Computed example of a mutant assay.
Amino acid sequence: MVYEKLFSLASIAMPFWFLLILLPTWRATRFLANIAIFPMYLAALYIVGIITAIAGSGFGFVQDFGSAEGVIRLLSKPDFALLVWLHLLCFDQMVGHYVYRDNMEHRYVPLPVQSILLFLILMFGPLGLLCYFVLRRIRKQSKLSL
């Protein structure tokens, strides 16, 4: 029940993705990104969830991280699966903030490309981050060769 409530509360951060993707230059978007309220909010929800998990069953679940079977066993538990989902949402949001803030400051990629990359981060996390790093590296190298 606690984890379902945390999951519901996490959805509040979703509209911020739309701001980052669709309205990157809007003053409210820049303000919210600069104070990083949504990654901190998701991190706080995750902390509540992980403390609840530890209080309920101790640190025993950590031993399951060492094998594929253990991870599958953990993820088969609905409460733990929701906690892991919250963990992913939080990290994706932090990565999205990083890419947004870094690109808005340095303009390694045009804003439409930034929006595509942020969508990739939202949907596929590491894929979007890797694409951003590759494009940023190409842009930096092209500036050096000029």
Rank of each mutant, 00 (worst) to 15 (best):
I35C: 06
S11E: 09
S67Y: 05
F61W: 15
M104C: 13
E69S: 04
G70E: 02
I12K: 02
L74I: 03
V113H: 07
L6S: 11
S145I: 15
G66E: 08
Y46C: 06
F124I: 10
L86Q: 11
G49I: 03
A55M: 04
V62I: 10
L117N: 09
P126C: 00
R137V: 00
Y98M: 11
L6F: 09
I50D: 09
I47D: 02
I121A: 00
I21F: 10
Q114Y: 12
R107W: 15
L82Q: 14
A36I: 08
I72F: 11
Y132A: 00
R101M: 08
D92P: 03
A36S: 10
P15K: 03
W85V: 02
I121F: 00
G70A: 00
E105S: 15
V134R: 02
G56N: 11
Y3E: 14
K143D: 03
I50A: 10
A36M: 08
P112Q: 15
L111T: 13
M123Q: 05
S8Y: 11
L144F: 13
F65L: 09
Y98S: 08
L20G: 13
F133R: 10
W85R: 04
G66K: 01
F119G: 12
V113D: 14
Q141F: 05
P78R: 12
S8L: 14
G96R: 03
G96T: 04
K77Q: 13
I21L: 11
L19P: 06
K140Q: 11
F16P: 02
S76T: 07
L135I: 06
A13E: 00
F65Q: 04
L83D: 02
I54R: 04
P39W: 00
L111W: 14
E4W: 12
G60V: 01
F7M: 05
V95T: 10
D64K: 05
V62Y: 00
S57F: 03
A33I: 06
L120K: 05
L89V: 02
G58C: 11
F80D: 02
M14C: 00
A13W: 02
G56T: 06
Y132T: 02
A55T: 02
L135Q: 08
R136P: 05
I12L: 15
L20F: 11
Y41D: 07
L23Y: 06
I35H: 08
D102L: 08
W17F: 01
A28D: 03
D79A: 13
I35L: 11
N34C: 01
L146E: 11
I12Y: 14
L75S: 13
I54Y: 07
L111E: 15
L32D: 02
F133H: 03
D92G: 00
L129K: 08
P110W: 06
L118A: 12
P110Q: 13
G128L: 01
F61Q: 05
I37F: 10
L45H: 14
L75P: 07
I121N: 01
S57L: 02
A33W: 00
R27Q: 11
A28W: 09
V71P: 03
M14R: 02
L117I: 15
V71W: 04
Y3S: 08
F59C: 00
N34G: 09
L118E: 06
M1N: 10
L74P: 01
D64S: 13
F18V: 15
W85I: 01
F7K: 06
T29M: 04
